[in-house]
């Protein structure tokens, strides 16, 4: 967190809890809207957060999203304790998924989550350790200009 952070909030997410799926992303969307950010930025952040939140619910034991807003930027750091990702490049490939049949029947686990996150961010970092967990850093520029 830098000294010019205007807003910071942490949202815990429990693995396996589909009944509350999406709640954190709705909250992030509403907060960013209240802060007066433009609709395209709010929606991109909401979509990326939604995919990240669902990834924790589907694959990890527990995790959290940390939202921070500075002038010009929205940051979402996603951390989980979970199985981690062995081959990140493969996991980023559209269509590749390790979701269960049950998840797929609900329309989750399309194998597009990480690709969607990347597509909606202005900067995207992913690190993962097998057996420990995964960390994502998502950055959204709020001036509407995408690099």
């Amino acid at each position: 967190m830098t000294k010019d952070t205007v807003f910071r909030q942490e949202f815990p997410v429990k693995g396996g809890d589909f009944s509350r799926a999406g709640e954190v992303s709705w909250e992030i969307k509403n907060l960013l809207k209240e802060l007066g950010l433009s609709t395209p930025v709010v929606l991109r952040a909401a979509i990326a957060s939604y995919e990240a939140e669902l990834n924790i619910i589907m694959y990890a034991w527990e995790g959290r999203l940390v939202l921070s807003v500075t002038p010009g930027r929205v940051h979402v750091v996603v951390e989980d304790s979970g199985p981690g990702i062995e081959d990140i490049e493969l996991a980023m490939t559209e269509g590749y998924s390790t979701a269960t049949l049950e998840m797929r029947e609900l329309g989750f686990g399309a194998g597009m989550g990480l690709a969607n996150i990347k597509k909606n961010t202005d900067a995207f970092l992913i690190t993962s350790e097998v057996g420990r967990g995964t960390r994502l850093e998502l950055t959204f520029l709020t001036n509407g200009q995408r690099p």
Binding site: I47, A110, A115
Partner: peptide
């Protein structure tokens, strides 16, 4: 019927046809 597919390819003001 895939949520992420719609998040990727759906567009503003479109109808979304699904069985979910």
């Amino acid at each position: 019927d895939l949520l992420s597919d719609v998040l990727a390819h759906g567009q503003k003001d479109q109808l979304w046809v699904t069985l979910q």
